[in-house]
């Protein structure tokens, strides 16, 4: 059951990734990328990391990709000749699926290899909000704070950049 689910999600994510690279419309690419995010979230959830899965969907699929779509829509990108130019869509889709079929076992061999007991945390709290939270605020407090300062700097930088532009125009 879980192996089946894994293959579905794996093939889904790889196909979405390929679609993203190959499709000629920017919006289609963005939507395919959302598909990748969702499949990855599914994979996370399969590994019992529910928090990461939810955050993956919430932050990447829900927030960042919406902004990407927003920008694409604002710029109104023209269609560029991507690889998937819709001449023989069935052949191409077939090729993608076939490629996946070949890749999936290779990948799965690597991923599904028995994890040799690297006991990161207590299995009871693994992946739960409490477990991740405790680790973030004890063991990894310094990287966590540094990352947050980095993000804050980026935020301030963005504000400064937009403000500057406005001043020079006005």
């Amino acid at each position: 059951m879980s192996a089946l689910l894994f293959y579905i999600l794996a093939i889904g994510s790889v196909s979405c990734a390929l679609l993203m690279i190959l499709s000629k419309k920017a919006v289609n690419s963005a939507v395919a990328l959302v598909g990748v995010m969702l499949c990855l979230a599914g994979l996370f959830a399969m590994q019992n990391a529910h928090l990461i899965a939810a955050l993956q969907v919430l932050v990447y699929a829900g927030a960042i990709m919406v902004l990407v779509l927003f920008v694409i829509m604002l710029l109104n990108l023209r269609e560029k000749g991507g690889l998937l130019t819709g001449r023989q869509p069935f052949i191409q889709v077939g090729a993608v699926v076939l490629l996946n079929g070949l890749l999936a076992p290779l990948v799965s061999d690597y991923v599904m290899a028995p994890t040799t007991g690297i006991a990161l945390t207590d299995p009871a709290t693994f992946g739960t909000v409490k477990g991740v939270g405790t680790m973030l605020f004890t063991e990894y407090l310094l990287p966590f704070e540094i990352a947050s300062i980095l993000l804050l700097a980026a935020l301030v930088g963005a504000v400064v950049l937009t403000k500057n532009k406005k001043n020079s125009e006005g």
Partner: peptide, 26 residues
């Protein structure tokens, strides 16, 4: 019965944005 139930709801709600955005674009 998810440990991260509330986050799940918000994650799902964030996906709903695409309905409107893509509808508007398409």
């Amino acid at each position: 019965d998810l440990d991260v139930g509330l986050l799940f709801v918000f994650a799902i709600a964030s996906i709903a944005t695409y309905g409107a955005v893509i509808a508007g674009w398409a």
